[in-house]
Design a protein around this nucleic acid. Structure first.
Lengths: 208, 208, 208, 208
DNA sequence: AATGAATGAGGCTTCATTCAT
DNA sequence: TATGAATGAAGCCTCATTCAT
């Protein structure tokens, strides 16, 4: 066979579908964060990607679908980083601290995700009925719940209602991370952050 | 009696402008709560009031103005009820408790306001720059701040950073009230609520 | 006698209907001149008069009626001033000059009328069919026509088609007055003005 | 024959963007001329074109933009025809005559443009500040100015103030063309027209 | 896979006019 | 006469979604 020559140009391997989806979700998060869901036009996202609206519709069903898939994408990445971080210790109090700190540092960097969490309260829904991210949220809360339960078992934490406190703590935790980050703009974020953790932990810890 | 009694006919006293505004704001809160800002049509609110769109525009500049004035109206009423409630005691711990409890019971009943607070995080804005309700929020926080400061003075509360903690606590407080109410649907809301207060107070109180 | 019996307050004699109409037309001209017909709201005019929209509708049928009556009012006043001015001479060339000069000085002062003439070409309509001010315009043109005819009779003007030239001259005359005034803002309006008259007269005069 | 002929189907060559714009502007001029700016609905123009409102907005920013672009389009075409016409002679008097005559015959045929010029005095604005068509108007006036100047240089025209006379003449010229056309409906337009030119030229020419 | 032109539903806002008092 | 609240008809514009190439 004479012609078997490799294509001359750069490999230019067509991005796999999953890679392309990831690109899309990241771009969407960025734009949704900037304008909010309602004011973001599908076209804005297409432009960010250097593609056309029509093309985008080959990958997602509609605007809402694009939003939800993108947020899920962001939440899962966040969750994964936290999960990795707490794998390194067994001490429950330390795990709680690490969980908070890792979340904080992660969101410090993932600006789009943080911004979206700040502006869309339905992501951590108030009424479970409408939870579009139920599965992801449940996994996150299960992580926290497990720590809480072990802490109570070990008499490190006060004997609170686990189910409810998990939910409450998780909400505080999220809001706290967000607020702390915001408030600490340019300041000694560390101190403010630690003070917050201290307040919550102090409320949770078993006092002798 | 010399003077004939005023004609008994139906009162039908023309509503004063302020009364009409109050009617409008209440109706608007109800509809905005039901559909959210974006999906609420100005016409929906007019219908709720039994008037026409055009008429509504005699009272507000545009849709956004209607929303903001209505929310302000709701926030101020809430704030007033809480303020009245804490006027009955001097004990700072009790004041903090009453503040929480009154807010809770108030929002239990003001469903539209609660719903709106749940869905619009910009009402208690994260970045103060965009605070459309800055004045009202400041007053609410000042109420809490005053209690905190007195508590610290009296060595009842731990010596936290007042400015920051007020802000953080206020956020937790709002979110906590909302969440608690939601979670306790049909359940023993009292218990859950008290448990939440207990957690926060426990974190705040000076432990001997 | 200590206290003079003069009536205490100002006479405050109720304005006659005609006086009130005049007030209304002057106010309307002012506002229509400022914003143009379309952008002027009936309410703007009412405000200018310190009365309410509803009240205005006691005097005119609708917005269009108000506009037309006001413009007529302004045109008639202008016309009267010019008519008075040319009554003082018999020389046709001088009459033409005075007609132009008086119109110029009059419109220099009646800013609203001038502005409206500038912006509404339908006042001196192109198609006679739609002439809302036909009677008034005809009177103005008859004044000019009479001068023209006498001038031709006396061999002072070239033997032009009277009917058509009147119409054309009248249009040029109006436009010229307006333009001249505009262009001469702050400048030696006299010179520019005289130069324009000179050009037209030169075209009209019988050259030996 | 080696290569099959391209499918013969109807040409149906997709109109270029510029061609489509031209179609749009022509349709817009027609409808704006018929109803006037204010009473023309964007939808009317879309219907005239057999397209939808939404589609129209792919080509222009808003209604005002559509109007201005359409008028510019019309003015430029007019200007181009006149420019071509005067290129054929060097005699200044003849150029002035041709300029007038060509404008006249052109506008005789371009009914929409003529109608719009008749009804919108702001196209040849009185106050230069608000000139939306300044560039185009300047070019037109420069054409006339050049002729005037050469005529004065050659002692064919009286020594008038060029700058001001250009402006004045241009205004008269436009108004004259429009008026002449209107007045001559069904009549011997030629004669009336020539009489008008004669009047102006006579005023301008240097008399021995 | 990708394009980009086309669609059309949908909502906000203005304001002339009316009417009850 | 006078008020001013109320009405409701318009019309502009946006943008998610589709579809023919």
């Amino acid at each position: 066979m004479l012609r078997a020559v490799l294509p001359a140009g750069p490999p230019r391997r067509a991005m796999s579908r999953q890679e392309k989806l990831n690109r899309i979700f990241d771009a969407a998060l960025k734009v949704f964060a900037q304008y909010g869901y309602k004011r973001t036009r599908v076209e804005d996202i297409a432009q960010e990607l250097g593609m056309t609206k029509g093309n985008l519709y080959l990958y997602v069903k509609d605007k809402k679908d694009l939003y939800e898939k993108s947020v899920s994408h962001g939440l899962l990445r966040w969750q994964a980083r936290v999960r990795e971080a707490i794998a390194g210790t067994d001490d429950v109090v330390e795990q709680l601290l690490i969980m908070c700190r890792k979340s904080f540092t992660y969101l410090s960097r993932d600006v789009p995700l943080r911004t979206i969490l700040m502006n869309d309260p339905s992501i951590f829904p108030l009424s479970p009925k409408e939870d579009r991210f139920a599965r992801i949220n449940k996994a996150s809360m299960d992580m926290m719940k497990a720590v809480l339960m072990r802490g109570i078992d070990q008499k490190r934490f006060r004997n609170v209602d686990v189910k409810y406190t998990t939910d409450l703590l998780f909400s505080i935790y999220v809001m706290f991370i967000i607020k702390t980050y915001i408030k600490s703009e340019g300041k000694s974020s560390g101190k403010l952050f630690e003070q917050g953790i201290d307040l919550i932990l102090n409320g949770l810890l078993m006092h002798p």
